[in-house]
Design a protein around this nucleic acid. Structure first.
Length: 306
DNA sequence: GCGAGTCAAGGTAGG
DNA sequence: CCTACCTTGACTCGC
């Protein structure tokens, strides 16, 4: 496989722009929501233009782009209010070949034993699936973690599978599952993905944390063919970070070390033949972490060129 | 403008 | 039981 796009998440440090400006629940009114979403969409468009100019064609949109979108107290209809604006941005992203994704936060938990938590997660995933789909119907994704273990991982996995079937058809289609840093290792997530027919987004950094701490012996070497297979004909997506110097072991660094990127590229070069994959860099410095690594992208590469 | 206090939400680890 | 941490820190108030 070869690296097609490098991406970053939610914010642009250079432009000081954020696709997820929000406000307190106590400030929620339809007017405030409309103003904030309009500003977030403007920020998104400016980031897309900057990205295209810098050959960055992969971006995660903040799940706060529509604050309180699925909250019971919100009556603001973003789809109706911004139909034309969304179509405009979609056309631009499409013309520039930019892939988009969203990643609900820690509170969206489909495996929870608490019904109210699951209901909220279903509502959250429903609107976010519609949002990504409106902007990138071809390659958009919705990244999710499995959730907690609650002292009984098999039961939690079973609950996840049952609740997955309750998602809207669109959310089921957009969803992809990521291995996390402490509970659901790649060899927990992969069988679940295979069972549900959901692509797996493999996070190199999370995977390595499990290895360094001796919780698992299974390496990516043993899993990579199966991880890629979960994507079918779609372009697989991976996550990569470097550790933060001196920070908590799970903290993301400001940048991504070139050696961490080349290690990931080497691992994937031997899989999947002449096939592209995309890589989301999770680094505090966002776009500034991507810029120095762009030359590793092989845009529009055809076989034999690498 | 700025520092302090607070924020919708879940879950885990360590004390 | 409680606090700290993860994550996208950053909004809001009172000075």
């Amino acid at each position: 496989m070869y690296l097609r796009h490098l991406g970053y998440a939610c914010k642009n440090v250079t432009l000081r722009l954020n696709t997820g400006q929000t406000f307190r629940l106590s400030s929620l009114t339809p007017e405030r929501a409309a103003t904030t979403v309009a500003a977030n969409l403007d920020a998104l468009e400016a980031m897309l233009r900057w990205n295209a100019a810098h050959d960055i064609r992969f971006l995660r949109i903040s799940s706060d782009i529509v604050p309180f979108a699925s909250h019971p107290a919100s009556s603001f209809d973003w789809e109706e209010a911004f139909t034309d604006r969304l179509a405009e941005i979609r056309a631009y992203a499409d013309a520039e070949g930019i892939r988009l994704s969203m990643h609900p936060g820690q509170f969206t938990v489909l495996a929870s034993p608490r019904p109210e938590v699951v209901e909220a997660a279903l509502a959250d995933l429903a609107w976010q699936a519609r949002f990504v789909h409106a902007l990138d119907p071809d390659e958009g994704t919705l990244t999710l973690h499995v959730g907690g273990a609650y002292g009984d991982k098999p039961s939690a996995l079973e609950r996840f599978a049952q609740n997955f079937r309750r998602l809207t058809p669109l959310a089921q289609r957009m969803l992809i599952l990521e291995n996390d840093d402490k509970v659901y290792h790649a060899d927990d997530v992969l069988p679940l993905c295979e069972r549900l027919g959901v692509p797996m987004v493999f996070d190199f950094f999370h995977h390595r944390l499990h290895h360094l701490e001796g919780r698992r012996e299974v390496g990516l070497l043993d899993l990579r063919e199966r991880v890629v297979a979960t994507w079918g004909e779609r372009v697989p997506k991976f996550h990569l970070s470097s550790a933060r110097d001196g920070g908590p072991r799970t903290a993301h660094g400001d940048f991504v070390l070139e050696e961490d990127l080349t290690a990931a590229l080497d691992l994937m070069a031997q899989v999947g033949g002449d096939r592209p994959f995309d890589l989301m860099l999770e680094a505090k410095q966002k776009d500034c972490a991507v810029l120095p690594l762009r030359h590793f992208q092989r845009q529009g590469l055809r076989e034999g060129a690498w």
